[in-house]
């Protein structure tokens, strides 16, 4: 098979879907995170517990939701509850993963989805935290998906909406956030990154097929930690693509979009 049998969006979703062990709990929103969790539910983790912040708990997602509160997020759900209940599940330590996107991200995995420019007179106003801050504060592990560019991956983020490792080792605990939580992996259209180091900084884990380490470096506005053993991301398998295209996102709501 040549390299063009899948697109960047499909690769990101498949790479993310493989992270979840069967039986884990995940707080998600719409878009790529939702597609990845649905694929995982159908292929790798049939017992994954999916939580939507509007209150849809343990649904059997029939297709991609458009709103975090729409009918798909409560389709055959085992519970419909409230925002505070969903967030309290996170706060009690019941949620293994949360899965987020963001407009800007820095080397500690802090995310901006609030403004570009100054807060009181912004150049661009984004929607704000939504549930992202709550999830990333209290879920054990945060997974982030984002297009990869030096504009987005920058240490000059205008606003920390959602906490990564804040200013580095122990900063989360000093701020009062629950112990042992924080960003786990970042998946972009170029690479997978992690924070498995004492400095709590973003480190390259694997590059996608056809992407060089240099491509990743050029598109990252800060210094990435890179050791000598960088693997290649496993490309999407036939099974993954079949289920993703036919069952998860038949209307190409997510996989039909450009990753950039």
């Amino acid at each position: 098979m040549n390299e063009k049998y899948y697109n960047e969006m499909e690769l990101m979703i498949c790479a993310a879907a493989r992270i979840f062990e069967d039986g884990v709990s995940v707080s998600v929103g719409t878009g790529v995170p939702c597609a990845a969790v649905m694929l995982s539910q159908k292929l790798y983790a049939p017992n994954i517990l999916i939580l939507f912040e509007a209150g849809g708990i343990a649904p059997l997602l029939p297709s991609m939701p458009i709103s975090v509160g729409d009918k798909n997020t409560m389709y055959k759900a085992l519970q419909t509850t409230s925002v505070s209940d969903a967030m309290e599940m996170n706060q009690r330590g019941l949620v293994d993963y949360c899965f987020l996107g963001g407009a800007q991200i820095d080397m500690y995995g802090n995310l901006n989805s609030t403004i570009i420019g100054s807060h009181d007179n912004p150049k661009v106003r984004f929607p704000g935290s939504g549930g992202a801050n709550d999830f990333a504060s209290s879920a054990w592990r945060t997974i982030i998906v984002s297009p990869h560019s030096s504009r987005r991956f920058t240490n000059n983020i205008d606003f920390i909406t959602t906490p990564g490792y804040l200013k580095g080792p122990n900063a989360r605990e000093e701020a009062g956030l629950p112990q042992g939580t924080g960003p786990y992996k970042i998946i972009t259209n170029l690479a997978v990154m992690n924070f498995d180091n004492d400095e709590r900084r973003m480190a390259l884990e694997s590059v996608h097929p056809g992407v060089s380490i240099d491509d990743v470096v050029k598109n990252t506005g800060f210094e990435l930690l890179i050791d000598e053993h960088i693997k290649q991301t496993e490309p999407p398998g036939e099974d993954e693509l079949k289920i993703l295209r036919n069952e998860v996102d038949p209307y190409r709501v997510v996989i039909g979009k450009k990753a950039q």
């Binding site: 409230s82 925002v83 505070s84 967030m87 706060q91 802090n110 609030t114 807060h119 704000g128 935290s129 801050n133 709550d134 504060s137 209290s138 606003f159 920390i160 909406t161 959602t162 906490p163 804040l166 900063a171 989360r172 000093e174 701020a175 009062g176 956030l177 629950p178």
Partner: peptide, 25 residues
């Protein structure tokens, strides 16, 4: 915001939570 409503629903003046800490939010 959900907890702010809940604090009022409980007849209180605040609730302690573990969100937003350490951020510009």
């Amino acid at each position: 915001l959900a907890w702010r409503y809940k604090a009022a629903a409980m007849g209180l003046s605040f609730l302690p939570v573990r969100s937003m800490l350490g951020t510009d939010t």
